[in-house]
Amino acid sequence: MMEEDPPRRIQGFVPPVLDGWDVEELKDYIGRLRAEIDRVEAAIARKQVHRGAADAFFRRPKE
């Protein structure tokens, strides 16, 4: 019998309080956020490629 994978939890994003940050800290924070967005977009693209390959293999009609 195969064990089921545990359910995935989507972690919420809690934005930090920006009041005490100077301009350079804010710019650095924006850079980190943009890098994270790029990382997530790359993961989405990889998943879409895999899904497309699976759909083509099984000839699943596109929705």
Rank of each mutant, 00 (worst) to 15 (best):
E41K: 07
M1E: 09
V40G: 04
D28Q: 09
D38S: 13
V17T: 11
R39G: 09
I10N: 07
R60H: 14
E36A: 12
R8C: 06
R34W: 05
K47F: 06
Y29F: 15
P61T: 05
L26N: 01
A35I: 02
E63Y: 08
D28R: 07
P6F: 03
G52L: 03
A45L: 04
E63I: 11
A53D: 07
H50P: 04
D55E: 14
D5C: 09
F13T: 02
Q48G: 07
I10R: 08
R60D: 08
R34L: 13
R46Y: 13
D19I: 15
I10Y: 00
G31V: 00
R32P: 00
D5F: 13
R60I: 15
R32K: 07
R60W: 15
L26I: 01
E36H: 14
P7R: 03
W21M: 15
F57Q: 08
W21N: 07
R59D: 06
V14M: 09
R8T: 13
D19K: 13
P16V: 03
H50V: 15
G31L: 02
D38Q: 13
E24V: 05
D5N: 14
E4F: 08
V49D: 05
E36K: 14
D28S: 08
K62V: 11
D19S: 12
A42T: 10
E63T: 10
K62R: 15
A53G: 04
A43N: 13
V23S: 12
K62I: 10
G12L: 11
P15V: 00
R46A: 14
G12T: 14
K47W: 07
I44S: 00
R39A: 13
I44H: 01
R46D: 10
D28N: 08
G31F: 01
A54E: 11
D38K: 12
P7F: 03
R9Y: 09
A45Q: 05
F58E: 06
D22F: 04
R8I: 15
H50A: 15
D22W: 00
V40D: 09
D55S: 13
M1D: 09
K62F: 12
E63M: 11
F58D: 02
